[in-house]
Write a protein that binds this DNA or RNA. Structure first.
Lengths: 232, 232
DNA sequence: GGAAAATTTGCAACACGTTTCAACTCGACG
DNA sequence: CGTCGAGTTGAAACGTGTTGCAAATTTTCC
């Protein structure tokens, strides 16, 4: 009854389920041995099916990304507002279970071996590219702009912020401020309507004020170093 | 004669020299045991003095960053041109010994444990902040802009590109194009002079064309996935 | 000069990702 | 039904970052 391929598929999703469970239960840095046990497979199986621990975490990430992409699509917000909304949704998403997301992202991007997938590559880039394309279609972004490079810039800006959050360098709230600020700056030069331009400029100033206030409140530098100072 | 602190210092720099040597000689993923031997210390000493392998690599990075900062400062280029020049210098710097820099950055940011320092934090952020501040002083950037957030956005944009290059996802040439594109976009909204604005717009279009040509030449997607496709 | 304190050393040990391999399981197929 | 073979299993082993610890070494201080 269960074909060979079905068996593989079942094991694959069992492993992913187990991985999610382990992280969510607090075993954020689970062992491959623990994962194998939790998924009722031998320790060699995840390697057969995914290739590495990192690859397993990428698969978990991809699964979560789908839910995020749906949420962004569902929030029928116009360009350029939708970009900011997308950041908010990501932050909300992360904030709902910070340890979980931090761990998954960390395992995917920091523990990792040599494998790599840009955070928003594949389905992710499609999401951003789609938003930009819509903006051009609807005449909210200058028609000279091409979706791919602008989307890439936005992704890069957000990616850097997310990575800093994952590493514990940033509060979620500051992640949002920084990403919004970067987005506002990036978009300022490419929005088509004068009203959008001035709205962005206003937003930019407000964001800058909030960022400065935040940094001033903690010693004046944007990225305080709390490391062990034993590095010569 | 050799005070306790001097001895420590000597060991510290011996370890850093050994680390640089090993990477440069091609042993890009050297062992802590190999490092200890090359530095003529016991394997425990790097842990006493730095704390972890990652911390050693951070120290190497910091050393290299100083040379880079000097190069940028020496290139007496006006704002906003200097930002682009800074990217060029970084790429030149990396291009001179790609394997070395890739390995050091990789070890610092991807192998790593929990420690973290933003790539441009500390001396790095000072460099970017300084360029932005100069731009404001010289009236090339809108006076409403504050150095810290703009510098942070530029750093984030570059950081994301560098990270992709380190992971082997990007050619050095594309790193430059992408960073330039992001920079042009970020700066477009904040340059004070009309001539700078139109120069940036021109540059932006040229960059976009080159990026699109590049991506078109290889299947149409900006970030092709060459991964093992065994991820379900 | 000698005790005391700080560090380094050598070495064994641990944890964990990953690999290897022979035995085994079980669907596929004639 | 019987054989084949892709894929899984279990267990052992490896490599490497990291730690612990007692002994040795070196600086400091009286």
């Amino acid at each position: 009854m269960a074909s060979r391929e079905e068996g593989k598929q079942r094991r694959r999703s069992e492993i992913l389920r187990a991985a999610r469970d382990l992280v969510r239960r607090g075993d954020t840095a689970f062992t491959m041995r623990a994962l194998a046990e939790a998924a009722n497979v031998s320790v060699a199986t995840p390697y057969n099916l995914f290739g590495s621990k990192q690859a397993v975490m990428f698969a978990v990430l991809e699964h979560d990304l789908a839910a995020y992409a749906r949420a962004v699509d569902d929030s029928a917000v116009p360009v350029p507002e939708v970009f900011f909304r997308a950041v908010d949704l990501a932050a909300e998403h992360y904030g709902r279970d910070p340890d979980y997301h931090r761990s998954v992202l960390f395992a995917a991007y920091n523990d990792g071996g040599r494998e790599y997938r840009s955070l928003f590559a594949g389905p992710g880039h499609a999401l951003w590219r789609g938003m930009v394309a819509r903006g051009i279609d609807e005449g909210r972004l200058a028609p000279i702009v091409h979706p791919d490079p602008l989307a890439a810039s936005l992704e890069q800006q957000l990616f850097a912020c997310v990575l800093e959050w994952v590493r514990g360098e940033l509060e979620l709230e500051e992640l949002v401020l920084r990403a919004h600020y970067g987005f506002a700056l990036l978009l300022l030069g490419v929005v088509a309507r004068a009203e959008d331009h001035s709205a962005l400029a206003t937003r930019l100033e407000a964001l800058q004020a909030r960022l400065l206030a935040r940094w001033a409140a903690r010693s004046g530098t944007p990225t305080p170093r709390e490391d062990a100072a034993r590095t010569g």
